[in-house]
């Protein structure tokens, strides 16, 4: 799962190296519209609904944060 997320992020940062804990929006490689692309990626590609209070940038700010959110919300069988 972590590799899928890393791959998604790297495809959107123009090949720049990005650490798992790095704040994606402070890197300057992406603009704010990327936040919505991450949410769409989590919902559509990873099949995890992002509802209500989950729609918080803290869940999508870095590769680690996305991973942690996905782990927390993924069905137990996955």
């Amino acid at each position: 799962m972590l590799d899928i997320i890393r791959d998604f992020v790297r495809r959107h940062v123009g090949g720049h190296p990005v650490g798992d804990d790095e704040d994606l929006f402070a890197t300057g490689y992406v603009n704010s519209l990327f936040a919505i692309q991450i949410v769409m990626f989590v919902e559509r590609d990873l099949d995890i609904a992002v509802k209500g209070d989950d729609l918080d940038i803290g869940n999508f700010r870095s590769i680690s944060a996305i991973h942690q959110f996905v782990q927390m919300r993924a069905p137990a069988s996955a």
């Binding site: 929006f25 704010s32 519209l33 936040a35 919505i36 949410v39 918080d56 940038i57 999508f60």
Partner: peptide
């Protein structure tokens, strides 16, 4: 997308 990202990123 513009409106949603404005809110999400505060």
């Amino acid at each position: 997308v513009s409106s949603s990202s404005q809110r999400l990123l505060e």
